[in-house]
């Protein structure tokens, strides 16, 4: 029994039950590994490989193919800004640039307090609500820097409240 099997037994079982082949569960399992380790770490890859009866190298190649698995540690809030054409027509490139400048990060970089990672992402299928970003897989739409600053403060406050509690 590895860490994932111990801590996420129910979710793993439900996932495996969907498919005639264990290998099909690899994508869902990688999400669970990312949730547990904060990124798809070597331990996470190993755990997933054991559950899916795959070679860790194969699991690693799947993790590397998709943009939603992070192959290195990220900030607590992973901000992925869409800068594709429809969003860019509505000022998303400037928004993306201003956000990085405000947080003092380069593309793909993480703010000094370890809170925010910013990167651009391909079309998020909500082009009528541009500019928008995805934060830890939830969309925030019709953004500008004013609204963004409010959100950033709110997220910071949530984390600080959690830290103070524990």
């Amino acid at each position: 029994m590895n860490t994932l099997q111990e801590k996420y037994a129910d979710r793993i079982e439900t996932t495996l039950a969907k498919y005639p082949d264990k290998r099909s569960a690899v994508m869902a399992l990688l999400y669970i590994a990312q949730e547990e380790y904060g990124w798809v770490s070597p331990e996470g890859i190993q755990d997933v490989a054991e559950v899916c009866d795959m070679d860790p190298t194969q699991v690693k190649s799947i993790a590397g193919f998709y943009t939603m698995y992070s192959e290195r540690p990220k900030g607590r809030f992973w901000l992925q800004v869409c800068t594709d054409l429809p969003c860019a027509l509505k000022g998303a490139e400037k928004f993306h640039h201003d956000l990085k400048e405000y947080l003092g990060v380069d593309e793909g970089g993480t703010s000094e307090d370890g809170m925010f990672t910013v990167e651009h992402v391909m079309c998020l299928a909500a082009c009528d609500k541009a500019p928008l970003l995805q934060c830890n897989f939830h969309n925030y739409e019709h953004l500008d820097m004013e609204k963004m600053k409010v959100l950033l403060d709110q997220w910071r406050a949530e984390v600080n409240a959690q830290v103070n509690k524990s």
């Binding site: 290998r23 690899v26 994508m27 998709y66």
Partner: peptide, 25 residues
């Protein structure tokens, strides 16, 4: 059943999509 992808335009191509469900690239 639902199957969640993980960010790859090419998986909208039907045979890539099938590979993705099967746990392949």
């Amino acid at each position: 059943f639902t199957h969640l992808g993980a960010g790859a335009y090419i998986c909208g191509e039907e045979t890539a999509l099938l590979n993705s469900i099967e746990g392949k690239l």
